[in-house]
Design a protein around this nucleic acid. Structure first.
Lengths: 232, 232
DNA sequence: AACATTGGATAAATCATACTTTTGATCCCC
DNA sequence: GGGGATCAAAAGTATGATTTATCCAATGTT
């Protein structure tokens, strides 16, 4: 699966440090000294410094002379950084984060659907209907993984078809939500047939160039998803 | 203004490099060699490498042995990184980015308003109504800067009151949109009285704990804003 | 001729170390 | 007790040495 662990010591140290901070083992306000981190991870100063720099650019720590590296409060973090999202998903707050991301999705995807209705290329329309068909097939056969892949394809294509780069950049977030939902059994064993129908309606409305209908159908999808999670 | 240029060579080099990449002077696919960057900026390897690491963590470049530092295609960038947003706002694509961010806002803020209606604390309700009052005062007097400050306060408070960290993290984005709009004269000289009324309706609905009404009123606000920009 | 193997060159990655600068803390004098 | 000089700690910067991955081409094999 999406393991973008770059080879390289610094990436490994970054990953470990991020996990430690997210988990709270390194709590906000705590100061780390570079020398201590060198020892802890058994790497050179260069490597530690580069990892710290990246962490600093994500707002998770701040480095000051004569003081050391201070872990920042959560309010300062760039919560949209994909690494932070992954670290949080891998930690104890997985469930609450999925809820937050689901609410974000609820706002963003209907708008993306409306925009896609006026911006989608014929190729993208084809991808959308193709994804819906695959969802229908695998939904009936009960192959949840294949269903998930088709679902992700659908939403990725739609976000890209919105013609809005910022919405397109949320593809990874949406994919994480969908994957997290199935992998943590927050979904029925057999997908709701009505969900598939709504996806088909979105695809059709996009193809027909009807923003209002596309937005409505997409809103049905995400609100059903919200209900399903709340009801868990 | 919000100049978080950390003192330090590496931050300065990072800023220059980011600007060069965003502007297209360093185009996707182009390879940079570290030695060459040392010379260009007159700094040591250490500094260049740390800047490159941060840029890499933002997805703007990728560094590979034996080949060098390659500028990545835009699709790989973390478009939600505050630095990238600032660099793009400072570049020629300012206007198109503001449009994209406005569309994002259109999706996110109504959801935030609905959530705020069930999560806002009394203090946050007070801040909201206070911000609306300041908007009314400065809107009538024509003090656009003070009006902007109150407007930003309103939306920041609302996003925080949603109780959703991800939505709260979008405060900077919304603030940039609002500021960019006034500073680039995409707004009428005197704010629409109806806009102020809608803000008041949101504040009232939030205080009353009415998510549906809060969402509707907020939708009025952001859709009016979209219309105003499109009509420019 | 097409393909696999090997070897060398190259540039980043890592390590080690020395030097600089900032800044919190202490001490001293008034 | 307050204010300024001084000290020292820790990050910041610079640089040379060494390691490692990998592209490229030359060579050899089928």
């Amino acid at each position: 699966m999406g393991d973008d662990n770059r080879p390289g010591l610094h990436g490994s140290v970054l990953d470990q440090l991020g996990t430690l901070v997210v988990s709270g083992e390194y709590a906000p306000g705590q100061v780390l000294r570079i020398e201590q981190l060198e020892a802890r991870f058994g790497v050179s100063r260069t490597v530690v410094r580069e990892a710290i720099r990246v962490l600093e650019s994500m707002g998770m720590v701040s480095s000051r002379r004569r003081v050391g590296v201070t872990v920042s409060v959560r309010a300062a973090w760039n919560l949209f950084d994909p690494r932070i999202i992954r670290w949080r998903l891998d930690s104890g707050e997985r469930e609450s984060l999925l809820r937050s991301l689901g609410e974000l999705r609820r706002g963003v995807e209907p708008v993306a659907a409306a925009l896609a209705a006026t911006h989608a290329t014929p190729e993208q329309c084809g991808e959308l209907t193709g994804a819906v068909m695959r969802m229908a097939v695998h939904g009936k056969s009960g192959d949840l993984e294949a269903y998930l892949a088709a679902d992700i394809d659908f939403h990725r294509t739609l976000l890209e078809a919105s013609g809005n780069e910022m919405l397109g950049a949320l593809t990874t977030v949406v994919a994480e939500v969908l994957a997290g939902r199935t992998h943590h059994h927050l979904m029925p064993v057999l997908p709701e047939p009505v969900a598939i129908r709504w996806h088909a309606e979105v695809a059709q409305a996009v193809q027909a160039g009807d923003p209002v209908e596309a937005e409505r159908a997409m809103r049905d999808i995400v609100e059903e998803a919200t209900r399903a999670m709340v009801g868990d």
